[in-house]
């Protein structure tokens, strides 16, 4: 089996710059996902049956659909819908746009659950103590309940980030040039002569990023816990 370490490092270096793309779609999806996830979590916890229903239907669908299917549906479906609405063709289709949309849709579903569960984990007494002291409900939420919910949500958030990066890697199927897409291109250009080195380098990058994310989150968790005096 031919595997040259030097070639491995060569490709490692060639792929690294494209991490930028990966982090871009992961980051943007996370941000949008938090916004919409928060919205749907509020719906789910609220009194309106209709809103609760909408949020439940959304999470049911987007947690059950395979990411790759959603990606293709978005890739073919959105331009079609856009054309139908505006009557204009969409022109050049940038893959990253569709990847961001897809990953955001998935992230929102997960984040709705994460936030709802974290919110419920905070003892009701915290809210009661807040309002009985004269704070408004909003003040109590943002100053007392939310920070504690965030702490409960941290581990799940870490997992989510890794998940977003992994699922977004499917973007190469619609032509996205992130690390996976670039790896494929490099492989084709070298007629699969260095196929082992390329894909092992690719796997290594993903692995390291995953481990780093885990460690970062554990560190953040520890820091906050230490600050609040908990063991």
């Amino acid at each position: 089996m031919r595997f040259k370490l030097s070639t491995f490092f060569e490709y490692l270096v060639k792929l690294l710059p494209y991490l930028k793309v990966t982090f871009t779609y992961a980051g943007l999806s996370l941000v949008f996902g938090i916004v919409f996830g928060f919205l749907f979590a509020v719906f789910k916890l609220g009194k309106s049956r209709i809103l609760r229903g909408i949020a439940n239907v959304y999470t049911a669908i987007f947690r059950s659909v395979p990411p790759v299917v959603l990606l293709f549906l978005v890739y073919y479906g959105i331009p079609m819908a856009a054309e139908a609405i505006t009557g204009k063709s969409m022109g050049r289709k940038e893959p990253i746009l569709f990847v961001i949309i897809t990953v955001t849709l998935l992230a929102t579903a997960s984040l709705t659950e994460i936030m709802r569960s974290a919110y419920k984990s905070v003892d009701k007494g915290q809210y009661e103590a807040g309002v009985s002291i004269g704070l408004t409900e909003i003040q109590t939420f943002f100053r007392i309940v939310f920070p504690q919910a965030l702490l409960y949500a941290l581990p799940s958030l870490g997992n989510l980030v890794i998940y977003l990066i992994k699922e977004g890697s499917l973007g190469f199927t619609i032509g996205l040039v992130d690390i996976f897409g670039k790896a494929n291109t490099l492989n084709q250009n070298t007629y699969s002569n260095h196929i082992l080195e390329i894909y092992i380098a690719l796997a290594t990058i993903y692995w390291v990023v995953a481990i780093a994310t885990e460690k970062l989150l554990k560190y953040a968790e520890q820091k906050v816990k230490r600050e609040l005096g908990r063991a």
């Binding site: 915290q126 009661e128 807040g130 009985s132 002291i133």
Partner: peptide
């Protein structure tokens, strides 16, 4: 003002 059975101090 209310004093709770389980104290309910703001943990954070």
């Amino acid at each position: 003002a209310f004093v709770f059975q389980n104290y309910c101090l703001f943990n954070n």
